[in-house]
């Protein structure tokens, strides 16, 4: 059974690659700057955020743009990744109605192509680190841990959302609202202390994406993220759990997709 699934996956490896390629190609087709937008977009939004929020919260922090970017890039991968996975089944309805293909390929390829774009956009962060003199230490290598958790969390959430949105299209709108809530509780453009000092620190403990961002920032700023192990264990557990739930849910309902698209 398990062996069979690996065989099928091997057979459709080329399809997975094609779909990832297609996602990247079509995202920037017909724009003059093309793939350069992957770098320009976070650069420009960070400029805006720095100007707007830096005056409120970041006066005494010269590395504020790095602080923003390190969260903003991760959040925008989570946001675009889950959204594109959610729509992937409907987007490929034409194919699904005609040919048998293991359906998880569609949300998986959506998350993967967004991850590739995200990986490219990390160049901006490296640039900002050099400009604002946040020089990496040995702890930079631990950044791989939050990045892996981020990938799993996005994949898991994407699988859950793609399954549910086949049956309830309203979810596409609801998720936009949820994402806004997630964004404001990720401490992207403000310092955590300003909220925590007012006694609302518990909000962050509920948000696994914030925990991932916190760990990632620790790696960027040369700190040991394992100094507070709960902030590593919690998001790791949630990420793995989300994938397990996502796969189980997807598997249970995938045969009914065809009746609803």
């Amino acid at each position: 059974m398990f062996k069979e699934q690996i065989e099928t996956f091997k057979r459709y490896r080329f399809l997975l690659r094609e779909l990832v390629k297609k996602g990247i190609k079509l995202k920037y087709r017909r724009s003059y700057l093309g793939i350069l937008w992957t770098l320009l977009e976070p650069l420009l939004t960070t400029c805006v955020l720095t100007v707007v929020f830096g005056t409120f919260f970041g006066k005494d922090d010269k590395t504020f743009p790095v602080y923003i970017l390190s969260a903003r890039l991760l959040y925008s991968f989570f946001s675009t990744g889950t959204k594109s996975a959610m729509k992937s089944i409907r987007q490929h309805a034409g194919m699904i109605k005609k040919v048998y293909v293991p359906k998880y390929i569609y949300p998986l390829s959506s998350v993967l192509f967004n991850f590739v774009i995200f990986a490219i956009s990390l160049i901006v962060l490296i640039g900002a680190m050099l400009v604002f003199r946040v020089f990496p230490t040995i702890w930079i290598f631990t950044a791989i841990i939050p990045l892996m958790m981020l990938f799993l969390l996005t994949l898991g959430a994407g699988m859950i959302l793609s399954t549910m949105s086949v049956f309830f299209r309203d979810l596409e709108y609801l998720w936009d609202v949820a994402l806004m809530l997630i964004m404001y509780t990720c401490a992207i453009f403000y310092k955590v202390e300003t909220v925590a000092n007012k006694g609302h620190g518990w909000i962050f403990k509920l948000n696994p994406l914030y925990a991932i961002i916190k760990d990632f920032r620790a790696a960027i700023y040369g700190q040991n993220m394992f100094a507070s192990p709960a902030w590593v264990i919690m998001p790791a557990a949630v990420s793995v759990l989300s994938v397990l739930v996502g796969v189980a849910l997807f598997k249970k309902h995938q045969d009914n997709f065809i009746l609803h698209i």
Binding site: Y12, F14, L15, E18, L19, K22, M95, V101
Partner: peptide
Amino acid sequence: YLYSAVLG
């Protein structure tokens, strides 16, 4: 290429 990939 895409359609051939879909067909496996």
